[in-house]
Design a protein around this nucleic acid. Structure first.
Lengths: 337, 337
DNA sequence: ATGAAAGCGCTAACAT
DNA sequence: ATGTTAGCGCTTTCAT
């Protein structure tokens, strides 16, 4: 193993191949302008020296960095899924990703600043908590796309799931199964909660049913608490749509602890299709967000802006209902109360 | 809002403040060699131009990048916690972090390469799946520290939790509570599983008890499956140590579904103190990994290597038992079988 | 304390 | 097809 104290530079490769640096540059950028013969010779020399282009220098020299800056929350597993999909989408478009994490001890403003210092060309912010005015300021400096949060801020592109339609699908699914007493445990003030509430309400009305909404929240505990409230006050309901999967898991737990059987006594639907929903012992029917689509839309928007394209400020991905074992046909007998 | 097409450069600031670029550089690096007066004047000019040093150029010019490259798995929430702690630890030491995610569609080799291309000075790999030989190759090129995985590879530093001691604590806790029939649901071939198994076995022997190990794994489903096996074959046990929190949650679920009460009939202890263990409806007694300590050790090791310090290849952080509500004193009556 | 000038390792426009 | 040259925006000697 050759441990050089200094990694090989383009200069080294040029010398070894007996050509100029420019030619090496051309070859490593896959640019036209080098004969097949020299191309091969240069790559050979590069390989022998274990040459890898210095990314910093590359970015500096280049007029455009072709760098997309992404902020995400280390605690949100959904963001992990999105990051993965973004890598794929960005690469396909010839861009690179720079990651910057937000966390309780590292606020988003810092996360974004470090991205700007790298001279990213555009910003993709996953579920940002920044105020609309702060987002607008960013958008004034460079293309900014917000994913998974509905915000109206000047110049800011938004990519998100059609939350309302997700709840429409959930309600219709339950109606088809024969349910009529369908509740919604909402997400309180969490991102997307208002839209899902509205979607639920409208779908219920269209079905000629009376909407009933219980205050909840995004966490397991919120779902469990809402569950306990329901079992006291609304023992006649046979189906529940819950804000998200995390909350639904808490809800399921509360239901089982009070002796309800799912889905025999109660059908439950979550939202997100988070990994937790897929576990055998949960196996939650849920409304899946289209992660690859969200990622593709986000990069398209960012790159589109860079190319000066104008577009509607919102790009919507359609969710899909994933039917698992927490929903079933309404029992003929009235539910246990 | 002034939307310049080009961000302000050091040159711009120098011109505005009426000084040379070198002086501006000194000021923004907090280096000695500028009078208070000009320092203030320069910062003033910089602020007016909303100047932010170009990180790429800074890295290029500087001999040392003071960059620590970190790879992590987007799916592991524990990695999120570590990343957050690493930011803090690195900053305290005057270093910066470069993040690169590994995921099913983006293997670790790529993640590491992109870090190398940024000329990170050292690598911190969270729970890497790379083979020891691959790790050794990396270590030959630059300081490499592996976190949360026990590997022996030439030149590679390892920072991890004392898994065996964690199980010692868990067993002793249960013994103090009066339990004698204590089982261990292991992690199969998962990282750390072997060490935890050994720790359990030794602690049991020291206590004069007979170890009994059930094959499990790292996921909720593994835990649930192991639980069902136990309830059939070992109905006399009153306490269980489970490989990790995820698995413990599955185990708890299986226990409750078969009518066991926790902790009245059965005490359960997990490992990690993952966020899921802290949920109200789980409230799992567990062995907590010391995340800030792991992060501090990892950065210390990386930076220590850069400074030419030698050290034992393994740095061990001690875990701490967190007592919650899934453990209690052994019931006087024999357990329900 | 301040400034001039030479890189850092690339890209890219231009010349041959 | 290949080479020359001038940046990119900083850091870092070395003078003054």
């Amino acid at each position: 193993m050759s441990r050089r104290d200094r990694p090989a530079t383009m200069e080294d490769v040029a010398a070894r191949a007996g050509v100029s640096r420019a030619l090496v540059s051309i070859v490593y950028r896959n640019a036209p302008g080098a004969s097949e013969a020299t191309r091969a010779r240069i790559l050979q020399a590069g390989a022998e020296l274990e040459y890898r282009p210095d990314h910093r220098a590359r970015l500096l020299g280049r007029q455009r960095t072709r760098l997309l800056g992404v902020t995400f929350d280390v605690r949100a597993s959904f963001h992990g899924d999105l990051v993965e999909a973004l890598y794929a989408a960005a690469e396909a478009a010839g861009y690179d990703l720079a990651l910057s994490a937000a966390a309780p001890s590292r606020d988003e403003t810092r996360a974004v600043q470090s991205l700007l210092d790298y001279r990213c060309e555009a910003l993709i912010l996953l579920g940002p908590q920044l105020r609309p005015s702060a987002l607008a300021e960013l958008a004034a400096v460079q293309p900014t796309v917000v994913v998974a949060r509905k915000v109206r801020a000047k110049g800011v592109d938004v990519v998100r799931t059609d939350d309302a339609d997700g709840l429409r699908q959930a309600v219709e699914h339950l109606v088809e199964l024969g349910h009529r007493e369908i509740l919604h445990v909402d997400g309180g003030t969490a991102p997307g909660a208002a839209e899902r509430r509205t979607g639920y309400r409208n779908a219920m009305r269209r079905a000629g049913l009376a909407p009933r909404i219980i205050t909840g929240g995004p966490t397991e505990d919120d779902g469990a608490e809402a569950g306990r409230a329901i079992f006291e006050k609304s023992p006649d309901s046979t189906a529940v749509t819950v804000f998200n999967d995390r909350s639904a898991v808490g809800f399921l737990d509360a239901a089982r602890q009070t002796g309800r059987r799912v889905p025999e006594d109660l059908s439950v639907i979550g939202f997100d299709n988070a990994s937790i929903a897929r576990l055998t012992h949960v196996d939650l029917t849920t409304v899946a967000q289209d992660v690859p689509e969200l990622a593709a839309l986000a990069t398209q928007r960012a790159i589109g802006r860079l190319n000066g394209e104008l577009s509607p400020p919102e790009q919507i991905a359609m969710p899909v209902l994933v039917s698992r074992t927490t929903t079933s046909h309404r029992a003929d007998s009235s539910p246990i109360t």
